[in-house]
């Protein structure tokens, strides 16, 4: 996903001198290296100085540029939080804060590298939008939108890392900022997710389809502004809705979906699966850490099949 992002940004930067990338000592692998070589005056490495990364992006944007701050999610959002809030949110500047490895993707690096509450934190800032693509195709669509949009404020762009499978296809609804999209449409059950963990949601949808259900799979790539109407319609159209989310139980998609369900007096069954409100002290694959938080295809199926 991050390589796709760098490739798209490199291509757009050839014709758009507003694009600047400000990184905090993260290796410029793949196309990021090409950007650095070809546009050195627009590639800034602040070193391990994330507050400067955000402040410099703000200054660039105040002078009409389209900067992208780029590092691991915990360091792009948490470390310089007040700069994100004041410099970007308060001034409402078109800066994209890229958080690589949102959720618990850095599964061997421990709690210091888990951005497991990032949606709640970014979402609490006025003017801040949040996009979390589920696969490299969505990352491409979102990156193009981020560069070409008219005006607009800051965006927290929650990313995976590398090697994510492509989940969207020609039958998926088109990508549109702020709109939930169906990757497939069914009648009985809807599985709703976003970001890298959508792969697990797709496995749940596959298994429930094999059980004989007619299953929708929808992704909510824009977490803020949330597509309240799209979620309300999804809740109305299905008998059972399952939300799968790689995020703390507070402030993410799951509690907001419950809120919408209450507001519209939804009649469907609603199951939500999120990370725990805990730091888990466990190391392994991404799947291992998700499982330690209670997120696995097997557990979800065991719960929703009863």
């Amino acid at each position: 996903m991050r390589n796709t992002f760098a490739e798209v940004l490199y291509d757009l930067a050839k014709d758009d001198p507003r694009i600047h990338i400000v990184v905090a000592d993260i290796s410029p692998a793949g196309s990021m290296g090409k950007f650095r070589e070809e546009f050195p005056e627009r590639f800034i490495n602040v070193g391990v100085a994330e507050q400067a990364m955000i402040g410099i992006c703000a200054g660039l944007a105040l002078k009409g540029m389209r900067p992208f701050a780029y590092t691991i999610a915990t360091f792009s959002l948490y470390r310089p939080f007040e700069m994100v809030r004041d410099d970007l949110g308060y001034q409402n500047l078109p800066v994209t804060v890229v958080g690589i490895g949102g959720g618990v993707i850095y599964s061997t690096l421990g709690g210091t590298h888990y951005a497991q509450e990032d949606i709640a934190i970014a979402g609490a800032i006025p003017n801040m939008s949040i996009i979390a693509p589920c696969d490299p195709v969505e990352a491409t669509e979102a990156t193009k939108w981020l560069v070409n949009r008219e005006g607009g404020g800051p965006v927290y762009f929650r990313f995976g890392k590398a090697g994510e499978p492509t989940l969207t296809g020609p039958d998926s609804d088109p990508w549109e900022f702020g709109k939930l999209r169906y990757l497939r449409k069914g009648e009985d059950v809807a599985v709703l997710s976003y970001g890298v963990v959508t792969k697990m949601a797709a496995e749940v949808a596959d298994a429930l389809t094999a059980d004989g259900n007619s299953v929708s799979l929808a992704v909510c790539h824009t977490l803020k502004p949330l597509d309240t109407e799209g979620i309300a319609n999804l809740l109305r159209r299905h008998k059972r809705v399952i939300v799968v989310e790689e995020h703390a139980p507070q402030g993410g998609l799951a509690p907001q979906t419950k809120q919408i369900a209450w507001d519209i007096r939804a009649e469907c069954d609603l199951h939500t699966f999120t990370l725990k409100d805990e730091f888990v002290h466990c190391y392994g694959s991404h799947e291992d850490i998700l499982a330690a938080h209670g997120l696995s295809t097997e557990r979800i199926l065991a719960t929703v099949r009863t």
Binding site: P17, A58, G59, K63, E82, D86
Partner: peptide
């Protein structure tokens, strides 16, 4: 630029100066 919280202006000034130089 909006300021008031201390320690924000210098980095914004750096970003502005880069933008001016590139423009």
């Amino acid at each position: 630029a909006s300021t008031g919280s201390l320690g924000h202006g210098m980095a914004m000034a750096v970003g502005m100066a880069v933008a001016e130089r590139n423009k």
